[in-house]
Write a protein that binds this DNA or RNA. Structure first.
Lengths: 339, 339
DNA sequence: ATATTAAAGTAAAGCGTTTAATCAAATAAC
DNA sequence: GTTATTTGATTAAACGCTTTACTTTAATAT
């Protein structure tokens, strides 16, 4: 059987309290006993049980990460950074894919609480403010990533979505596009609204017509991007460019164009959002709004852990700047391929 | 504060043992008291603490999933399936990305043990048999996915890598390719060796020359695929096809060709392995050996949980058949584009 | 030599459960 | 109407650790 603190104490000829102290570097213990205990621990290959320790009110050193889908490259990347930072600090992360499903989300949260996780990171989940409020009221450390709840005092890390949408659209405007469509995500998400907001702003500034038919709402899938862009391309007066609010949608847009024998970027310019690995593997490589994913993941974990460690502090709202990664999926509509 | 079993017991006017019994549906309790307790639980919003329960020797309902990198789409997809199946059965999964780093792997395993996880799923990690043996000796349920250790009695789910390599290569042979290169993964992995083995077998059967210069060993990155394929393409007598042992490498191969203004599939045919989302988003879409990822992830979780539930049973080794997903990255070398 | 203080270690309670051993009441058997 | 049996609920110990308050021993001061 696994050795317990008693085994160590007995073999070292001390009390369990003493062992506990050397394990946790607390209280005062003499050099000699300390050494002795350490030796015995090694001999017995003793490791303290986190669950027993947690029962006495200490941390579980486990946090929950709620994302819509861990298989989505954007969230997978975030998860990886969160995990890495956690590992550095001695925390494990349990992954929870909610599929934007409110019930699943609630289930996961309930489970996490039963397991006494030390905190929860929420990445772009659905708009169930009540659940969130309840969590905060219960004093469970929570941090948001890529999701904004300005009305709540909670640590948050996100990108300036407005600027992102604006930058993407401006890029297209500057290239001379007149009819620019946007593929939005679920408008229930603040981030999504902001991106579209940025899109509108860019159009306005350029005094371009503002065709509501070119604003389509979808979700987070290649398939949605494909079918919606298909509709756009079948329009009599079709757009020459589309701004997709995430890379998955952008890829769908590219596929729809390909299916109609339209060339990217000659016949249709596409810009995405996120800058996941997918943006680099398409052909042509995708021009996309790059989120500093690495930094975001790391930062949100840092904030959560500060909260866990109980440093009483005011909540932070960290807004990072996105940057347009210009690649080959965008081009002026005026310069046709034949030239 | 969070209500404990004592609060419920007091308010319901029964002993904590009674509450415990209704919670766990064990022992005998009268209908009336049962109802009463249930009501109070609801009122107080009581949920039993998993950590306290675990301390008494019961499950933690948490398992560890070790993969090289959760941000790699193949593993992300597996993780998602494992998580889903776990969720159905009431288990959480903590993710551990090892980066093929032996030390990190050992650290994670040690941490997981301290946390008393109920079991561990190992996905394609490095060849540290000793750690594995130790785990099994300690009676910690373990299951392998996409990784083979025939000498160990441990539940395993994998694809027939030999057949996979053979199928991929045969496909190219049938198209008339004579010089076919292979981009292998780390040959320390049995799966990697098997794929190359299948490759060789296909060449042999076709009595094709067997040029060792065309067998390159790399890892799991786009970058490696790009640089190695670059070398191949710069050869005086360059191959007309390359079989990449994973989709990431295949994408690198495509990029290398593109950089040299070679057309895929006209100038170079490429087949990958895994059939991740990446294979569908490249242009041209990638012909690749499809692993039944969904089924694999689900199955490995099922095996692990059977083991956890202690059904004494003989370990299973589930070998699934891969299937070639033929897309547009492969083509006969004889039919040139001009025709 | 005695009083004071600091250092090192111990005993015991507590964390929130589960469970084996009991016990009391109700029902059945004779 | 006793005695045996079943049913329903309780008691108390155990799980492996942390921590507070206390005791002992050693060192220093008086």
């Amino acid at each position: 059987m696994k050795p317990t603190i008693y085994d160590v104490a007995r073999k070292a000829g001390v009390s369990i309290a003493t062992v506990s102290k050397v394990v946790n570097h607390t209280g005062r213990i003499g050099e000699k006993t300390k050494k002795r205990v350490l030796e015995v621990m090694k001999e017995l290959n003793y490791y303290p049980s986190v669950v027993a320790s947690a029962l006495t009110g200490k941390n579980t050193y486990t946090i929950g990460l709620l994302v819509p889908d861990i298989a989505n490259p954007f969230f997978a990347e975030i998860a990886r950074r969160v995990e890495d930072r956690g590992h550095e600090l001695g925390f494990n992360v349990v992954m929870c894919s909610t599929d934007h499903n409110e019930e699943k989300e609630a289930q996961y949260i309930s489970l996490l609480k039963r397991k006494s996780v030390d905190g929860i990171i929420l990445a772009s989940v659905i708009q169930n403010v009540e659940i969130l409020k309840a969590l905060i009221a219960e004093n469970l450390p929570v941090a948001l990533i890529s999701r904004d709840m300005p009305e709540l005092a909670v640590d948050t890390v996100l990108v300036d979505d407005f600027i992102g949408g604006y930058t993407a659209t401006s890029h297209l405007v500057k290239q001379g596009h007149q009819r620019i469509a946007v593929l939005a995500e679920n408008l229930g998400l603040a981030s999504s609204r902001e991106r579209v907001h940025g899109y509108r702003k860019a159009l306005e500034e350029a005094s371009l017509i503002h065709d509501e038919d070119l604003v389509l709402v979808s979700d987070f899938s290649v398939e949605a991007g494909r079918s919606l862009t298909g509709e756009l391309l079948d329009l009599p007066d079709r757009p020459t460019a589309v701004f997709a609010c995430n890379d998955l949608l952008a890829i769908g847009a590219i596929q729809a164009a390909r299916e109609r024998n339209l060339k990217i970027p000659d016949d249709l310019s596409v810009v995405g959002f996120d800058n996941t690995i997918l943006a680099t593997t398409t052909d042509p490589p995708l021009t996309t709004v790059a989120q500093p994913i690495q930094e975001m993941g790391r930062k949100v974990m840092d904030l959560l852990i500060e909260e866990i460690e109980g440093k009483s502090r005011t909540k932070q709202r960290v807004v990072l700047m996105p940057e347009l990664a210009v690649r080959q999926s965008t081009k002026s509509p005026l310069i046709k391929e034949g030239l």
